[in-house]
Nucleic acid binder design. Sequence first.
RNA 1: GGCCCUGUGGUCAAGCGGUUAAGACGGAGCCCUCUCAAGGCUCAAUCCCGGGUUCGAUUCCCGGCAGGGUCACCA
Length: 580
Amino acid sequence: MILTAAYARVNEDMDMDLKKLAATLIPDKALLAPEEYESVYPQRELEKGAEVTRLAPSPTGFIHLGNLYSALADERAAHTSGGIFYLRIEDTDEKRKVDGAVESVIRSLKYFGIKFDEGAEIDSPLNKYGPYYQRQRAEIYRSFAKRLIEEGLAYPCFCTAEELDAVREKQTENKQTTGYYGAYAKCRSLSEEEIYNNLKAGKPFVIRLKSQGSIENKFTFRDAIKGDITVTENDQDVVILKSDGIPTYHFAHAIDDHFMRTTLVIRGEEWLSSLPVHLELHKVLGFKPPRYAHTCSLMKMDGETKRKLSKRKDPELSLDYYRKAGYFPLAVVKYLMTVLNSNFEEWSLKNPDGDYRDFKFKIDKMGKSGALFDLEKLCDVSKTEISKLSAEECFDFLKGWVDEFGTDGDKKHFEDKEYIIKILNLIMGVGGKKRRKDIERAEQGVRLMDYFFDDTFAHTDKFRKYGAEKDYSTVKSVFEGFAAVYDPADDNSAWFAKLKAVAGAAGFASEMSEWKANPQNYKGSVSDAAEILRIAITGKANSPDLCTIMGILGRERCLERLDADLCIMKNLAQAKNSDI
RNA sequence: GGCCCUGUGGUCAAGCGGUUAAGACGGAGCCCUCUCAAGGCUCAAUCCCGGGUUCGAUUCCCGGCAGGGUCACCA
């Protein structure tokens, strides 16, 4: 049964013709009666325990990490229970609307592997509860608002923004609760005559709820995440229909969640404080409220204190940030899963190759306090996820990033797939017993490969300076000695044996044990000799296996680099001498 | 300021009246080793503060304190 107004109607003006008032205020002709919507949007036929959840963003064009976080919780809650996850667009605020925002939401979430079962712009046979844009549902809201007016549970308010501001100021001054309530709800007690005069004068108006609650009354509400919370009854005559005839969030969501047959509303905890309003609205509309789950916000350290991640200050709130930096999308999702359900991490450790969708997500396992967003941990998750990829998969991932965000040089490099795959096999340790975890994000991974290409190698030579500090003749003898014996066909141990011999001849200890025992007898150890070589070949002091790198580069290119390095060394040495 | 939520290592956190207070990230060290990464081992580091209740409180209650959220014709 609908609209069994549970409250006694408080009509200050018993003589007022409410039917007439409602018809004047909401003159729409072909409005369906409120109860008719019950059959337009029948109960869903789902298994017992199946959750119907939704993501309901406003189309501002900015989808952020909080949305992903919430979407993931919604999606998991629905799909682990055999339910439905849908997309509804809360476009009741004209000012905040941005073109293409809806597509952007869908695209962004899809990038992270999250898909909707039904809803706005979703092509699905399940779309039986639409329209999914609130602006297109105006008549439903108006039908209910009209009924509320007829019942004396809502009324027109003609107060201007200036008047409201003045009242708020006064209330603040007097240290009273701000808002439109009690004696401050001026228009609540307007006489029939006054209302019609205002209307005749063409004054704009909003429709307000005639709240029946009292802040004297407290009750307990069970939140799906926070557990029992103490709630005070609402006594604010909140606006339900704005002066443009479009509902506010409070009113619209109550009606939509009811008729879209939502069972679980997951939303940010910033909504907790308006929960009393929502509960009263449901009551007055004759709806059984859905279960609510209020999630904690993702926080960030700002100096000494934590604060909510902010759109203006924190680029890492934007989902584009993760795409641009090239975090592995699945890693972002998995990281968020660990924040959502901390036991996910443990499960993940036990099932390193498991699909996160097999994890039993529990809404009540969600944390009650705001978690600091930990980029370092995300990096860790990202690099282990990337390390699980095959070279081929990793190529596709990096290529996707390069196509969108890479330099022209990167794009050119990635045309030679075979060469890149060789590099990836090396820097990921594919085939070896131990996988390397060098790549934590696409951007950094692509830069990691720079020294494999002549055009970008030149830009990574800052370590040559370090090499240049070595004695010229020593470097010369290592390079020339190695060049003489180097054979790309050598396997790792043959390669290293040659290096040892060359190092020994140049005055380095060829065995580490020998070096450790008598360091004073040598210029350094094999590792120092290897370092000279490494810097000349890669431009870096650290790299994966040098033998393999040289194999990929090819004999010619390696010798060229040794020559080039030697040349620089020579010049440096001469400059040094002439200074003296 | 009113109201509401939250309070375990640097971070994310298990814990549900008796525990050597898990684990992960990060940090330190060692091993491995041509450097790095990875891996293995080890270490350092936590129950916001007072009162109760109790034989016993991180755990329950009350009060502080601290942090967060919210007080719109925005969602």
